[in-house]
């Protein structure tokens, strides 16, 4: 992304162990960089922790981000770290408000890259309307990290109309996916060493909280469940739902939205798009009566243009996800085993 502010002046070109030592270098990094860039009334207090006001039920979640490379088509680790936690809160039916931010930086990371990540975090916070209110910075020796690892933890009040709960999922409910699948995983793969290929597929990393809150406002309890299919992809999340509800899920392959380029890349790489990671889509299970209207509303949103009903919750084949293939056959879609490994031919 473009830097929207000037990079802070700093004598060091690289992060050194001293930047995590707690002394003057750490202070300089925080004062000149982190606090200035992420400034807000709670962070500006510079206390050991943030004092926040929370009334009523709230959601609380945490996530760590380790990704190679840290800058990838369509985003970077900073943006991902904010959006990931924001989206997890949104999946609980909460309105994300406050985030913590912890860095584990590998000695030698370029200072320029660190600032880029930080500005990206700021921009993602603005887009999601959340504040970083506390955090931590540690530096590990060269070779003991992978440039930078980020942990974010988030809290947010539950939306008053939210009733997101696995126990509310019933046979006959419909399964909706909010946009095209598999873009994030394929974009990352396209820039990994040894697997590079030319494409303009971008990661779908983005905050989904505004779109989810709009849905909850209108449809409330009709929305039974929200899940974001990150690692393990659509298949793994749907398997978790089937397992935990003890119901079956039938999918229709033809209805699963996937961009042609992503489909092509999956064909070439021998990957199944159902198992490829996403960062900016969600699955929702909804009461059948409102499903079409929900899809129509999602389609009006820039992050939900390709939202579609892709399947149904059923009493048949309990705890299993079964998909009708494009030519009318059926197959079980299992949970991902280990890591999806590219095939030989």
């Amino acid at each position: 992304m473009q830097l929207s502010c000037p990079v802070p002046t700093n004598d060091y070109e690289q992060i050194t162990l001293g930047h995590g030592g707690g002394g003057t270098l750490t202070n300089k990094l925080l004062q000149e960089g982190v606090f200035t860039i992420l400034s807000n009334e709670l962070l500006d207090v510079h206390h050991d922790g943030a004092i926040i006001q929370m009334d009523g039920p709230a959601a609380f979640t945490t996530d760590s981000f380790v990704i190679t490379p840290i800058f990838f088509p369509g985003g970077d680790i900073g943006e991902l770290a904010v959006n990931g936690t924001v989206n997890d809160l949104a999946m609980c039916g909460a309105i994300p408000e406050f985030l913590s931010l912890s860095f584990i930086i590998e000695e030698g990371m370029l200072m320029q890259d660190f600032w880029k990540v930080l500005y990206s975090i700021k921009s993602a916070c603005n887009q999601a309307n959340v504040k970083i209110v506390t955090g931590d910075t540690k530096v590990v020796e060269k070779g003991k990290g992978d440039q930078i690892f980020i942990n974010t933890t988030g809290v947010g009040k539950l939306h008053p109309k939210a009733q997101i709960n696995l126990s509310r999922v019933e046979a006959g409910d419909l399964v909706i996916v909010s946009d095209v699948v598999a873009s994030h995983g394929i974009s990352i793969m396209s820039v990994r060493e040894g697997l590079e290929f030319e494409t303009d597929i971008l990661s779908d990393t983005r905050p989904m909280n505004h779109m989810v809150i709009d849905l909850l406002e209108i449809y409330g309890s009709t929305i039974r469940l929200l899940k974001d299919p990150t690692r393990g992809g659509l298949a793994s999340v749907l398997n978790e739902i089937a397992r935990d509800t003890r119901l079956g899920i039938s999918l229709d392959e033809k209805k699963i939205p996937i961009a042609d380029q992503v489909k092509g890349a999956c064909e070439i790489l021998g990957l199944d798009p159902l198992y490829v990671a996403n960062e900016g889509i969600f699955i929702t299970i909804v009461a059948a009566k409102d499903a079409e209207e929900i899809v129509a509303d999602l389609n009006k949103n820039e992050f939900g243009k390709h939202a579609a009903i892709i399947g149904e919750v059923t009493k048949e084949h309990p705890q299993k996800v079964v998909m009708k293939s494009g030519i009318g056959g059926k197959r079980v879609v299992n949970m991902l085993v280990g890591e999806q490994l590219p095939r030989i031919c």
Binding site: E316, V322, R331, N334, R343
Partner: peptide, 22 residues
């Protein structure tokens, strides 16, 4: 191991049969 291996393929296939006859 591989999704191209007959046993892995059958592992999935057999589960369909079981699921649909339950």
């Amino acid at each position: 191991v591989s999704s191209e291996g007959a046993c892995a393929a059958y592992y999935h296939f057999n589960h369909v049969e079981e699921s649909l006859t339950q």
